[in-house]
Design a binder for these strands. Structure first.
Length: 273
DNA sequence: AAGAGACCCTGGATGC
DNA sequence: TGCATCCAGGGTCTCT
């Protein structure tokens, strides 16, 4: 599942591979992959446009275009991009093909078809609802403390709320809580400043380390070069239920929080502080 | 504010 | 072996 680190790795790869390419023609093979505008306007709006920049915001990939508009992609569960010579035979999960003028194709691939593409005048039309970037300078421990103070719910669902912190998904929420030694059901407002500082550092560390290891590949994730990540070998709790905690040996537990599988060490992350 | 449930999808796991 | 069923999971939406 692409979360912030995986989307960052893909965006960097796309910037390198197609950062200045011109889109000649677009083929939409699965219309629902295009969120907006309508498919004909999407195709027409992209024809002839030069990509001038590819970057990430939250879990979105932003392609800036030479006419000032933007192509945005949210990969959801199984979306991805890859670049091939035009002679490459079709792939069963390709949903949108961007034919480039240099003879290559950019494929939007998505097994489960949850991902969405947006062609918009301004990226803010889509991104305005997002919260703070966890790897930015604005995300300080004090800012996190401000956020948590007003929240009566459990800490784990809060970390998954994109309107509060943008880019953290299920894997890195569990990993950050483990690293900070905080139980996923602790009330956000109950964390003391020492715990907030630990959580703030843990969020940034698990995300940055995952980027450094080119993302986590559990099933389908590949970067823009088609390579798997290496971060899956470094996970401490995610999908490790029943296995010994790497820190203390206690079996990792799995519970459901906010309808999401949640993994933690009952010894390193006590329910009571 | 927050939690539950439905929905969108498919591959893989599980059950019989 | 083969078929049916269940489940995960990000985000959005509705309802309470």
């Amino acid at each position: 599942m692409p979360e912030l680190p995986e989307v960052e790795v893909i965006a960097r790869g796309l910037q390198r591979l197609i950062g200045q390419s011109i889109i000649q023609e677009v083929e939409v093979l699965w219309p629902r992959s295009v969120a907006r505008p309508e498919v004909p306007a999407f195709i027409q709006g992209l024809a002839g446009r030069r990509i001038i920049d590819v970057r990430r915001r939250g879990k979105f990939i932003l392609f800036s275009l030479d006419d000032g508009r933007s192509l945005l992609a949210h990969l959801r569960m199984t979306g991805g991009f890859c670049v091939f010579p035009r002679t490459t035979p079709p792939h069963p999960y390709v949903r949108v093909i961007f034919h480039l003028t240099d003879g290559r194709d950019l494929w939007y691939v998505d097994i489960r078809k949850f991902g969405r593409l947006y062609l918009v005048d301004s990226p803010e039309e889509v991104l305005q609802a997002l919260g703070v970037e966890p790897l930015s300078a604005e995300f300080t421990a004090e800012r996190l403390a401000d956020i948590l103070r007003r929240r009566k719910g459990a800490i784990k669902p809060l970390l998954l709320n994109q309107g509060i912190i943008a880019g953290v998904g299920n894997i890195y929420a569990d990993e950050a809580l483990f690293r900070a030694g905080i139980h996923p059901l602790r009330r956000a407002a109950d964390l003391d400043m020492e715990e907030v500082r630990a959580l703030h550092a843990a969020i940034r560390e698990v995300l940055q380390e995952a980027i450094d290891h080119r993302g986590t590949t559990l099933r389908n994730y590949r970067d823009a070069d088609g390579e798997t990540g290496q971060n899956q070998f470094r996970l401490n709790v995610y999908r490790r239920q029943g296995e010994p905690c790497r820190r203390c040996g206690t079996p990792i537990e799995r519970i459901v929080v906010g309808q999401r599988g949640t993994h933690f060490c009952p010894h390193c992350q006590p329910a009571q502080p």
